[in-house]
Design a protein around this nucleic acid. Structure first.
Lengths: 219, 219, 219, 219
DNA sequence: AATGAATGAGAGTTCATTCAT
DNA sequence: GATGAATGAACTCTCATTCAT
């Protein structure tokens, strides 16, 4: 009796996370307004009232979803880059891009991104949170790499460290467009990423005598 | 019977446009789901039923808003570019970008763009419409300019004509980000546009002996 | 200029009748609640407001329809029977039945009957009016014929003059059933009428030595 | 989870029936279109939303009312007749008529009948259902009894087994007329039924030497 | 007399939230 | 803790009726 039946106990402790995950699936499928608490409950295998045991309102549930799903990805990349002092800055940039294409465009996390963009205006805390926890961190990271590249004489570019968004933009757009328009106009994300990275390379690296014969991305 | 009373009649002809404009304001403020027909009516200074006199459903009203506000912009750009045979391709590209930054990022039309992106997944006709009427036309335009530039020997870039999205992406992201994050992190769109265009220039134009001394955008 | 253009004038005077007829068609097609004034107007070829020029409410229009369509039929039969002193009472009865089968079951007047039955409970004046103008007259007529038949020694039946409904019932039911169930179970009204009349005959006429060899209805 | 709380549970099981009964009362009072779900809810002592917990639409509620109130009656009669092999066919016929007069004309079930007739044309499923579940069963029953009577030499009538409606018609008309016209012209249903049954008897039974001295209905 | 644009009360339906069990 | 029956405010859409022209 001490500690209770382990299976049931684990179940109990896992409840909130299960509900959040069920909610994530519902939200990315249907958006905030069209998601019914009852659907979330059904997906989580609990009764409607149980959701309210852990989350006082639908908005709180949404917040939990956003919080749980958005932070981990970026942190991982940051750690990888910061620990690394020897890799050329451009290769780091390429690596960041590759990770984003894989983890954001290539998974259904793009639907979460879409949801955050979509619901942002109605949830001030959401945009504030997303900007603070994700965007600014991502931009800081790119900025750091750009400056390191410039310091090492790799990059000739100026101004981009002021607007790292410009470098990330095609990736974010790829995420949004594949989510929205895949039926009408599917994108070959592999090639899209290659072209994007090649564009960055030509723009950042100093002129070479024979232009363009460098391998765009040997990976 | 034919002709009607002039005052009434002028009103009748003006009504739909008035309602569409009121609806646009409501939609960009609150999104589709959170906009009540009654709000639109109040904003247009008419009764609830009057809205239904002109638009059979809320979706039809939404479609009218999208159509009225989004199609004219792109068409105008297309006409300007197509009529022009002498301007260097890069200057055309820069012009397109400038127009987009001015009309899309610099006005509250960005909120409409946001709304279309936000509500897209739940309104297939909307994504279909937006893709057909706006995106594909915009991409075709950029593609045409790129090819013209390549044919004239201006551009060395390959691959971009396959993914014109990559060139437009920073503009669209600027629209979305200024809409979402302006309170937390305002962007100096002028400089952002300069940097974006300079990036494109360095990536597209062949190497010059003296790199970077070209005026970025004399406009 | 005196009297105005005759065509237009006739049109004007005919307006109410035209609207009533249009309303009749709508009402029998859709019932009272589901008939929209706008439909009636469209069917009459006038504007919605015009209907209200002649009929203050939807109910008033309904009343006009009922009044205009229900009285004429019965009066004609009554006159024919009352003027006739020589025909055997049973032949008169048969004649009444034949007329009812032809004019009520065989035309779309049955739909009007249906409408009166259907809407009756919500329009007390309608049932009152229908009972006074139609039903009681019809029942009085049958009663009179029955009594004449008894007086002449034709009929042996008693009690039926108290409930003439019993003799009319199969006809009314034929009208209702053909209206409601024709798709599922069409009735051969000719034969149905024959069987009905034969039933009345056997019930009313005194026994004959050889039962049933009388022609049921030479008509 | 399984079993639930007894009090709640009993309530849940009773609710649909309570709502159906409340709906029946509203429908027979006001007809389908004029009945508001809120009225039904109020009459059942629940909130508007509760009705939708058990019936997805107003039509579904209507169907439930029709089904619950109309099927049991006929089934009961059928069972009683079918189990019986010895009773003379005419007595069975009389029994059917008596039950119909008692259960259909003598109760407010006649208002339900009226409602079904009234709303039939606008609800195809309703006429289809009524014809299949009630009418055709009733007609088959009468047909079977008629044929049994003919086989036993009780009846001389021909043709009626083709149109059993003719025998039922006065009963249905009694139901409708007492519902519609009772205020203006009340019917003594007892005597009406006697006369109706006597009419059938004279029409069906072969001639007797002493006509009419048979007790009409010893019951 | 005739029009038809405008109105707004009211209906069906949905669903976040509550709470007795 | 967990349930799910119950609630009722809120929303979309309809249509009888009005009235300026």
């Amino acid at each position: 009796m001490l500690g209770g039946c382990p299976k049931r106990r684990r179940r109990k402790e896992a409840r909130p996370a299960e509900i959040v995950e069920a909610a994530r699936l519902c939200f990315v499928d249907n958006g905030f307004a069209a998601t019914r608490i009852e659907d979330v409950a059904a997906r989580a295998g609990v009764a409607k009232g149980t959701v309210y045991l852990y989350f006082p309102t639908k908005e709180a549930l949404f917040e939990a979803v956003a919080r749980a799903n958005v932070v981990p990805v970026i942190e991982q990349v940051i750690r990888a880059i910061e620990a690394d002092e020897t890799t050329p800055a451009f290769d780091q940039l390429r690596m960041i891009a590759r990770v984003m294409y894989r983890d954001m465009v290539g998974t259904d996390r793009k639907r979460l991104l879409h949801m955050i963009i979509a619901e942002g205006p109605r949830f001030p805390w959401l945009t504030e949170f997303y900007h603070r926890e994700i965007l600014s961190k991502g931009m800081d990271l790119i900025r750091a790499v750009l400056r390191r590249g410039q310091a090492r004489g790799e990059f000739r570019a100026e101004g981009l460290d002021e607007f790292p968004q410009i470098l990330m933009a095609p990736t974010i757009i790829a995420a949004i467009f594949t989510h929205l328009f895949d039926a009408h106009d599917p994108i070959d994300v592999e090639r899209y990423a290659d072209v994007h990275i090649a564009l960055i390379e030509r723009a950042l690296l100093p002129d070479r005598t024979s232009g363009g014969d460098r391998q765009p991305d040997p990976e």
